[in-house]
């Protein structure tokens, strides 16, 4: 018989449910095994002569025979123990176990330390700050969001963007300003007038070769221009109101100031060259805007065709 066999038979021995042969077997083992002898004495209630160490090994032996290794049970409660979440009774049980068990003690120490240190990883510094890259990426995205899905950059940070992208990005940033719709109606009209004299005739015979290129950009600015159309009437009305007083005063008397005279001229010019053509321009806003950008592109040497700018009146 070995120790394991003795453990299995221990209950039967103590309860007196063993045959004579089994007793002899057990006796033979007890004679040669101090561990089992102590265990048997203790279980039979005759272990008063044990010293501390004896009690210790005996308790361990009893526990391992009955409930098994207690460390598994200690492990289950270790997190709550470290977090001080156990009720007092369990806390004391754990204290008692840890006092005897170096393995669980060192595990508890490691658990406490890592628990204390983990929150310090909530924020980590990248070796290189990422703020600049994020801002670059998102402002580019902002341009994309404004102009739809096309012309997305392949990867942030790649600096090789064509003139068209750069112009689009610039327009996109400008377009974020609240007054953009107001401004675009006004500035676009003036721009057309300054460059071409008359915006309606300016693009009557635009080159067909640049049409695909134009369509892209035209699509890109279509939304701001749709807004422009909405506020277009207000824009014209408010500019008129600004000019009117001067125009009225122009007829008032002999002391016609230069400003008043200028106002009169400006008003007539405005009516003839801006207000009348404005609505037809806006109605063709997509095409016109596309061609403006095409003209800008050609001026910057992007397109190969020679520009054919109509004569300014």
């Amino acid at each position: 018989m070995n120790c394991q066999g003795f453990d299995l038979r221990l209950d039967a021995l103590l309860d007196g449910r063993c045959t004579a042969d089994q007793w002899c077997e057990a006796d033979a083992h007890l004679a040669g095994c101090a561990r089992c002898a102590r265990l048997f004495e203790a279980m039979a209630g005759r272990a008063d002569d044990l010293d501390d160490e004896g009690h210790e090994t005996l308790s361990a032996a009893i526990v391992s025979k009955t409930s098994g290794n207690p460390c598994a049970s200690a492990r289950e409660r270790l997190c709550d123990f470290v977090d001080r979440q156990l009720v007092r009774f369990d806390q004391e049980l754990m204290d008692a176990h840890l006092a005897r068990c170096p393995r669980c003690t060192s595990l508890a120490a490691a658990l406490a330390e890592s628990t204390r240190l983990l929150p310090s990883f909530a924020e980590l510094a990248p070796r290189e700050g990422i703020v600049r890259d994020v801002l670059a990426a998102t402002s580019r995205r902002q341009a994309d969001a404004t102009f739809g899905a096309h012309a997305r950059p392949s990867r942030f940070g790649s600096g090789s963007t064509g003139l068209r992208e750069r112009v689009s990005a610039w327009i996109a940033r400008v377009a974020q300003r609240p007054r953009f719709s107001f401004e675009v109606a006004y500035v676009l009209t003036l721009l057309l007038l300054v460059v071409f004299g008359n915006p309606v005739v300016a693009f009557r015979d635009a080159s067909a070769r640049v049409q695909p290129h134009v369509r892209d950009v035209a699509h890109a600015v279509s939304r701001p221009l749709a807004n422009a159309r909405k506020v277009g009437a207000n824009t014209l009305a408010s500019v008129e109101r600004a000019i009117r007083p001067n125009a009225g005063r122009a007829n008032a008397g002999p002391e016609r100031s230069v400003l008043a005279e200028g106002g009169e001229l400006l008003y007539q010019w405005w009516q003839a060259h801006v207000v009348a053509p404005f609505w037809s321009v806006v109605s063709e806003a997509r095409d016109v805007a596309g061609r403006v950008f095409d003209a800008l592109g050609r001026a910057a040497g992007v397109a190969t065709a020679e520009p054919t700018i109509p004569a300014v009146r």
């Binding site: 924020e123 510094a125 990248p126 070796r127 290189e128 700050g129 990422i130 703020v131 990426a137």
Partner: peptide, 26 residues
């Protein structure tokens, strides 16, 4: 930035990948 980078680091194989992930998150 640092919090997002820390979260990204949990899924990244190294600092460079964590940096890329952090950017994607933002």
């Amino acid at each position: 930035e640092r919090r997002v980078y820390s979260i990204a680091s949990g899924y990244a194989s190294g600092p460079d990948e964590a940096r890329d992930l952090a950017q994607d998150i933002f």
